[in-house]
Simulated scan of single mutants.
Amino acid sequence: MITISTLIPYVLACLLFSIVPGPSVTVVIANSLSRGTRAGLLTILGTEIAMLIMVTVVALGLDFVMSVVSEAFVVIKLVGAAYLIWIGWKMFNSTGRLVVEAGSRLPYARYVWQGAVVNLSNPKTLLFLGAFLPQFVDPGRDAFSQIMVLGLIVMAVATATDCVYAVLAGRAREVLTATRLKLMSRVSGAILMAGGVWLALQKRI
């Protein structure tokens, strides 16, 4: 059981970790601006699925696997960076027809997939969780259950902050004219491409 004295500073640390924009927040904002709040929320679902996978890896204590296949993270990072640049380029060259027509459906899986790929492509998230979560674990108790609970808390905080970004970006989109929507699509695409370049240039911790 996590004590209040541990929970409060932990939640505050999670909040600081979550509100700092990174590749995941970038793609959430970009999708919300280009396709609306629903697209942003679906993207968040993908990022949290990826986060759950990483928390589970940490909870299982697979540090030795991470060290053995550490070079694979470089490849994963570059693939994710290329993916960000690709979807950013497509968005940058959008015609500006961003409003979904009545009766049509959003490609839900596309946004979930984007969120998951972008989050999994950032090895620093896994390395951060591996270094961050154990700091709040009581060595006298079961480590797996504690890390899973701590992981679910950081996921909840990240979901809340990301939803704020998605809603704000989606609301901003609703008040834009067609011309401004096209401009915003280009801005979002440029942000995504810049995020891809930033991710590719990040060095391992």
Rank of each mutant, 00 (worst) to 15 (best):
Y10R: 07
A169G: 04
F144R: 05
V154E: 01
S70G: 09
A169R: 07
V69M: 05
T56I: 12
M91Q: 11
L78K: 04
S24W: 04
Y10V: 09
N31G: 04
G140C: 09
E71V: 08
L16I: 14
C14D: 00
A160R: 00
V68H: 13
S67Q: 12
G140I: 09
L192Y: 00
V164S: 06
A131W: 12
A109L: 12
V100W: 13
A166G: 06
L183I: 14
L192V: 05
V187H: 04
G115V: 06
P9M: 06
A169C: 09
P139R: 02
C14R: 02
D63A: 14
L183N: 15
G80K: 05
L16F: 12
R141V: 15
S32E: 03
V187D: 02
F136A: 07
V164R: 06
Q202V: 15
V57S: 13
T43P: 00
S121H: 04
A50D: 05
V175Y: 15
N93I: 11
A30N: 03
V57K: 09
R97E: 12
V11W: 11
P123A: 10
L129D: 08
S104P: 04
L16P: 00
I191W: 01
I147Y: 02
I49R: 11
M1A: 13
L98C: 10
A116N: 04
V25F: 02
V27W: 01
T37W: 02
V79M: 05
T3H: 15
L168C: 07
P23Y: 14
